[in-house]
Simulated assay, not measured.
Amino acid sequence: MTVIVRDLRPDVRADLDSFVQVRRVVLPFMVFTPESVAFDIAHAHPEAALRRLVAEEDGEIIGTAQVGIAYDSPEPGQGFVNVHVHPEHTRRGAGGLLVRTAEEHLAGANATRLHAWVLDDPANRAFAEHFGYTASRSARFLRLDLAHGTLPPLQGPPLDVEIRPGSDFDADPRPLFSLDAEASRDEPSDIETEFSDYEAWLDETWRHPLFSAELTSVAVVDGRPAAFSAVRADGGTRYFTAMTGTARAHRGRGLAKLAKNDSLHRARAAGYTEAFTGNDAGNEPMLAINRWFGYEICAAEVRYVRELT
């Protein structure tokens, strides 16, 4: 049996379905659809050097790789390569071929440092270390049973705060862009993020097919967004908190918790049964908030880093 690596064909539905199927098996705590994968490719920023690779064995897709440059980092040359192989098809060379193909592409795109998220188990960690990657920070994925769990009751906001759905900003989402940019700068990460391209943010966040402005909640103070909980959802039963943050001037008031609670209650009312989120292992304030909601850790990842010479 022969394994080959090639680019995903976003105009071929069977490719998209197989790509998503592999990722759902390996990463059941994340939310994506064939449409969202095709959208990501079609709307990738030119400087991202984005590629979606697949490993194919006798016509069957058994592995995937997400590869690109973190173009929104102020430090140039930060590449990423996230490789996943279907657990029933490991040890056939697919992972190694995906890594080597990805690294060649990123070297050609002037990457100087590569970052890879690896599931925190001995086999995956050994695989990353075999290719010269060194463990860095870790992250946790969390799950909340919306169908059978008990959410904290809704709380009324302070008199100077209004909780509004993100869809209220459809006519002009720029204030949410500014808030997202400010909050993201303080997110723990190996790769510093600096949102400065509003049009790119509209493409990659606001107009993304998974983004739900209706389920996103925003805490507004004096007419300006002060905290938010942004949501991606599959339109069926699965809900994912993509980002929760607060403007620096309004931190310490519990506004992010208010926004997220509002969003979770509306998601449950809309029929969503599972809520997922992810947090850096060092982000104890957000982990504490999620424990308060009833989230439980369902998986862990480790960020591995390799310098390119």
Score class of each variant (00 low, 15 high):
residue 45 H to K: 09
residue 78 Q to E: 10
residue 50 L to Q: 14
residue 82 N to A: 05
residue 115 H to Q: 08
residue 109 A to T: 09
residue 72 D to C: 11
residue 75 E to K: 06
residue 55 A to Q: 06
residue 76 P to G: 13
residue 66 Q to T: 11
residue 71 Y to V: 13
residue 93 G to R: 04
residue 82 N to M: 03
residue 91 R to K: 05
residue 55 A to L: 08
residue 49 A to I: 02
residue 115 H to Y: 05
residue 78 Q to F: 02
residue 65 A to P: 00
residue 38 A to Q: 11
residue 44 A to G: 14
residue 66 Q to N: 13
residue 92 R to H: 12
residue 45 H to C: 11
residue 116 A to F: 07
residue 85 V to A: 00
residue 72 D to G: 08
residue 72 D to K: 10
residue 51 R to K: 15
residue 88 E to T: 11
residue 48 A to F: 05
residue 110 N to G: 13
residue 75 E to M: 08
residue 81 V to L: 10
residue 116 A to L: 04
residue 55 A to K: 03
residue 92 R to K: 11
residue 49 A to P: 01
residue 50 L to N: 12
residue 65 A to L: 08
residue 113 R to F: 06
residue 77 G to Q: 08
residue 106 L to T: 03
residue 68 G to C: 09
residue 110 N to T: 05
residue 53 L to Y: 14
residue 89 H to M: 07
residue 93 G to I: 01
residue 107 A to L: 13
residue 57 E to H: 15
residue 86 H to V: 08
residue 75 E to N: 08
residue 85 V to Q: 00
residue 113 R to Y: 04
residue 38 A to Y: 10
residue 37 V to P: 13
residue 103 E to H: 02
residue 107 A to M: 13
residue 47 E to R: 15
residue 100 R to P: 03
residue 51 R to A: 10
residue 110 N to S: 14
residue 88 E to A: 13
residue 107 A to P: 01
residue 58 D to P: 07
residue 64 T to R: 01
residue 110 N to R: 12
residue 38 A to I: 02
residue 85 V to L: 11
residue 106 L to H: 05
residue 46 P to G: 14
residue 81 V to M: 06
residue 83 V to N: 00
residue 67 V to D: 03
residue 46 P to Q: 14
residue 53 L to D: 01
residue 47 E to A: 14
residue 60 E to D: 13
residue 69 I to E: 00
residue 96 G to V: 06
residue 58 D to I: 09
residue 98 L to M: 01
residue 111 A to N: 06
residue 81 V to R: 00
residue 69 I to A: 01
residue 88 E to F: 08
residue 113 R to M: 09
residue 46 P to T: 09
residue 42 A to M: 10
residue 92 R to E: 11
residue 43 H to K: 12
residue 71 Y to M: 07
residue 68 G to L: 05
residue 78 Q to T: 05
residue 88 E to G: 06
residue 111 A to F: 05
residue 55 A to S: 12
residue 58 D to V: 09
residue 73 S to Y: 03
